[in-house]
Nucleic acid binder design. Structure first.
Lengths: 374, 374
DNA sequence: CTGAAAGCGCTTACAG
DNA sequence: CTGAAAGCGCTTACAG
């Protein structure tokens, strides 16, 4: 890059009056090197602005000092449709890598693409972190192939038995359970679930299972008419809410499988003149930065991205070092905000209070707090 | 990584019946290699799942095949506070790098940290892309130092004379001009600007300059009481809007220097019962994914992140190849949505229409569409 | 505790 | 068009 000759460990050796091998040892903190020598070498390196050539050291030591982050995604026309939740994860993973002295290579992979690209990626890094959304099953076989190649990989997602690789994820089941528990506490009885609940999206499916479990625990009947598929985007959330309204099934709450879905639903409700939380309580999942700033602020489930990133990186490093590792479920916690808090609702809700309350306490069988037109 | 010995170019050479040097040439598409040989080598490489060892090739060719993306940011306690606009940029830059056969290393740098870290970064990559926010002036000196070291770097930001490095940015001035022009068209006359307008934040400053220019062109007096400092976050936007209200200066529109600020302001207005756009029109800048989904949807300025990422990567590659490069200003375009469209406002606005309209047509001198309490 | 030497897997003049 | 050879800048046995 520079016209001047590159400064190498030989230059430092000469400057410090030691051999090149000693420079290498000293700089890597080899305990065999005596303190006095180490200091002299360090001073020389600093004086000459020397840093080790990664390519050479990695070539020699047969490691890359690099971790790769692969985003799996459904092909989207627009870059900006990346879930903001992953941005927080990205920040956390980057910082965690830096703490451990690793570089982070990042790469976006379309779900449909050839697995060979992933394998190529694997040679540039000591291991791979997978962060993805989109169809999970479509992904499983490629993970198997990668693992067969000896690639170290950890993935973010639902922690399930027989996973193709080490997985770190948050406790989606209990998250779902606590959201629905909270909505039930608020007096809601007809809680719609917006999100794909199939095995293709196991995280959503777990949240849905938690939801059903919470209903069951309270003796509230589940109604399949209240589950509408949606992927994690505002647009999809808006469509799902509209589809729900079109079905004509009565509901007094929406539990969206992600904040993006919830925010899309909020928009759909608002444009129909349906008040949140007065007419319908709404809750999401993820606690993306936006969640606290939409109107009304969104009740949601926080995933600790700082801890998640650290867990991903540390598990991968253990894998690389051939240490024992296990998949990990991280705790989450419910954050209650205005979108589900009937008590915290705006003043203008007062006038609706009486009849709404009456309806909410109606028996589960025919609880139609509002009858949306089809 | 694998227990099996690594497959090298020598294995491919043996398999294809050529020399190792020929394998290297063939795989790199050297035109000297005859087609038939090239094909045989390619087949051998595919058969053995061979990929070139980046460390070795980079060491030998004295390049890294890698670009580094440095996020400069004010130290934030929370990973999630990264501006979503940069996520879109990240996606775009990543894809652009992939297209050009480069890897992307990413790194977050706190603004206060030692510049030496950046320099170290520079040895892992052929060049650096800077994406940052926070105080610009604090950054200039370190850029100078980096450039002195011979580091190739391009930065995203305001394109100004005497920049310390090649800069790609969007046309902030005309963006600001078109927002304010639009708000004036809507009949607004007291337009508040929420955003730091000092030289510390040149992008905001340019937007503000465009704003002032638009006012001037229409003969509308600017009022410094209507400019409130804010950095690009919802929280800061909320505080700024509250500060504006506290000042007691009348205003009928808010031009926020970024969407995050706008969304924060929207929240502040909403919690005071101030209707948007009926009482106050609001516009932002960036068109983050959220902008179209807040309530009401936010009028804003779109920056073409796809093109921006491509321009950053291409400029940097030209710099690396010692080709001539110049800073570039990218066009932007106004997107009008409900937050500033008085006509498109919700039905309930009708009743306010008469008196609001009357106020809006009042002379510029005493136009108090609403008088916020202090 | 330190040095001399080999070699990681490539690319690239240099020959032919 | 292809091969033999040197060497990129390190790390790491192997000696001492």
């Amino acid at each position: 890059m520079r016209s001047k000759k590159r400064i190498t460990s030989f230059d430092i050796a000469e400057f410090a009056g030691v051999s090149q091998a000693t420079v290498s040892r000293a700089l890597r903190g080899n305990p065999q090197v005596c303190e006095e020598t180490r200091l002299r070498v360090a001073a020389a390196a600093a004086a000459l602005h020397y840093t080790v050539d990664k390519n050479a050291s990695n070539l020699r030591s047969k490691s890359t000092g690099t971790l790769a982050l692969l985003f799996f995604e459904d092909p989207t026309p627009d870059d900006s449709h990346i879930n903001p939740f992953f941005l927080a994860m990205l920040g956390s993973i980057t910082r965690s890598c830096a703490r451990h002295g690793y570089d982070l290579l990042i790469s976006f992979q379309e779900l449909g693409r050839d697995w060979h690209a992933d394998f190529a990626e694997s040679k540039k890094a000591d291991g791979i972190i997978l962060l993805g959304y989109g169809d999970y099953l479509a992904q499983t076989s490629r993970l198997e192939k990668l693992r067969t190649q000896g690639t170290r990989l950890v993935s973010w997602g639902a922690v399930l038995p027989n996973q193709p690789c080490i997985t770190i994820g948050c406790d989606n089941f209990h998250g779902g359970q606590s959201v629905t528990g909270h909505l039930l506490d608020q007096g809601c009885r007809r809680i719609a679930f917006l999100g794909d609940a199939s095995e293709h999206f196991p995280e959503f499916q777990e949240r849905y299972r938690g939801h059903l479990q919470a209903l069951h625990a309270r003796g509230v009947a589940a109604d399949t008419a209240l589950q509408v598929d949606a992927e994690s985007s505002q647009h999809s959330g808006k469509l799902a809410a509209e589809a729900l309204l079109a079905r004509g099934a009565a509901f007094d709450a929406i539990f969206a499988a992600s904040d993006l879905i919830a925010i899309g639903a909020l928009g759909a409700l608002s444009s129909r003149g349906i008040a949140v939380p007065e007419d319908v309580a709404v809750a999401g999942f993820d606690d993306i930065p936006m969640a606290g700033f939409v109107n009304p602020p969104l009740t949601t489930v926080v995933q600790d991205t700082g801890r998640a990133g650290e867990a991903l990186v540390e598990s991968l490093l253990r894998l690389i070092r051939n240490e024992p590792v296990a998949s990990t479920v991280l705790p989450m916690r419910l954050v209650v905000r205005g979108s589900s808090l009937w008590r915290g609702a705006a003043r203008k809700a007062r006038r609706r209070a009486a009849d709404t309350a009456a309806r909410r306490r109606a028996p589960d069988v025919t609880p139609s707090p509002r009858r949306p037109r089809a």
